[in-house]
Amino acid sequence: MSARLTSVLSRIAQAIPVVIGVVVISFVLTRALPGDPAVYFAGAAADEASIAEVREALGLDKPMLRQFIIYVGDLARGDLGQSISSGRPVAEDLASRLPASLELTLSALLLSCAVAVPLGVLAATRPGSPVDHLCRVLVTAGVSLPTFFTGILLIYVFYYLLGIAPSPLGRLDFIYIEPDHVTGFYLIDAALAGDAETFLGALKQLVLPAITLALFTMAPIARMTRAAMLGALSADFVRTARAAGLTNRTVLYGYAFRNALLPVVTTLGMVFSFTLGANVLVEKVFAWPGIGSYAVEALVVSDYAAVQGFVLAMAFLFVLLNLVIDLAYTLIDPRIGFAAK
């Protein structure tokens, strides 16, 4: 076990250059963007003098290298800087918005896996059958419908026409107060507080956006499961297992599925990372206070600190995610040596 721990630590150490690179690139890129935040934040009626005052207040009058040194110094102290547009420390903004995005993305992925993986397995075991066709239709529809469209359609049908869904007003309807902050995940926090009412309230708000995202993410997962299962089922070891007289169930789930899991987990990791940053449209439609819309708004107004904070947070999340996926590989397939990678 300690060997595994050292290898985990060495993996984390390997991520350090990546993070340094991200810090430099995000700093340079945000400043290379067109737009002058001092002019923007001084307001429409500002004159030269007040723009200069704002520039000085934001520290943008200093040379680039000096700004970078200050930024890195702040980072070393764990200070991500102050977002000008929200007026709050970036760390605070991220802490309140990242859990919202994570809660939505994770629930969507759980839902998506719960449907897509069995569907993929069924489609692979019965190629050409109605299940296989259903899988294909669902997958095509899922990817070809843009998320904002699915979102608005679901709102129209389930909220506007049928009145089953709650008002699409974000994470909680206004008649509830949010649970005490523990993890930032409303479902978990409400459960910890033992507040069934708020838990249900948060769950109801989550259903439509989670379905919207799940429909979109189902496609790659179902396709990958199907393909990997097909590959595994035609492999020699499955033939051997069948010849040895193992039950169909054992062959399917004990051998074929376990071997097919590797590419599925890889896909899952990729899907997770792109949905987390890319669900801006879903966030906008459902008024979800997530990290994607935060980053886009910050980018539009050249709010440097907020953009850098977002990029950095995503980079950390990726490093972490890759680590988890690599760990998952070794659990699924013991032949994969972790330390060797």
Binding site: F148, I152, I155, Y156, Y159, Y160, G163, S167, P168, L169, G170, F174, E283, K284, V285, F286, A287, S293
Partner: peptide, 15 residues
């Protein structure tokens, strides 16, 4: 409440 999507805002007020 801040609701960025105009379509969502429209559904809310109509309802």
């Amino acid at each position: 409440r801040e609701v960025p999507s105009p379509a969502t805002r429209r559904a809310l007020i109509e309802r």
